[in-house]
């Protein structure tokens, strides 16, 4: 008779398993400041403004756009999102060393497993669009988070629309 136990040996678990974090950050990023008006006479020291490095992950997020949205229980690319995916493909053509992962996300109106499958459909739809625009398929991976990573947590259409999304995240090869 074997025992399931009070003596679980889980110290050996996961120590070596490092999560390759590529979480999409939703905090405000450094944006290009509007052109400052000409300073009146002896200007105070100019505030340090961060410059976005071309070819960087920040460049992609801010100047290209990393997110597209989907209709309820839909996974086709909406016409309004084709321009951002076109920009993504052009940017990826300009920086051929960059590799990306497309995350597929869902709103909360679906069971857990179904939403994992739906998120995979969405991520794949983005990937197929990028590949059709000339991005080589080997540079684009996909991952579904189902409904597990909402960016908005209220139960209303405004939040649901934000959460039904595909996010192209850079996983390597960008300037930094």
């Amino acid at each position: 008779m074997t025992s399931i136990s009070r003596t679980l040996k889980f110290a050996c678990l996961s120590a070596a398993l490092i999560l390759g974090a590529c979480t999409h950050k939703q905090e405000a990023v450094n944006t290009v400041p509007p052109p400052a008006p000409p300073p009146p006479v002896p200007a105070a020291p100019a505030p340090v403004t961060s410059k976005i490095l071309p070819g960087s992950a920040e460049d992609f997020r801010v100047n290209v756009g990393d997110t597209v949205h989907f209709g309820y229980n839909e996974y086709s690319i909406q016409d309004t999102d084709k321009s951002v995916l076109g920009r993504q493909a052009a940017w990826l053509a300009k920086y051929p060393a960059v590799r990306v992962t497309v995350e597929g996300h869902c709103d909360e109106r679906g069971t857990r497993e179904y939403n994992l499958a739906l998120g995979a459909r969405r991520a794949n739809a983005v990937k197929e669009y990028l590949v059709a625009q000339g991005v080589s398929t080997g540079r684009v991976e996909t991952v579904s988070y189902g409904k597990e990573r909402p960016i908005c947590t209220e139960s209303n259409e405004g939040c649901w629309a934000q959460n039904r999304r595909g996010v192209t995240t850079i996983t390597g090869g960008a300037n930094s």
């Binding site: 074997t2 889980f10 110290a11 999560l19 590529c22």
Partner: peptide, 18 residues
């Protein structure tokens, strides 16, 4: 989602191995 790759794993309760 170890390594950001969602896959099915087995966990052995006796040994703690996954």
């Amino acid at each position: 989602y170890i390594g950001n790759k969602p896959r099915v794993y087995l966990f052995d309760i006796e040994t703690g191995k996954q």
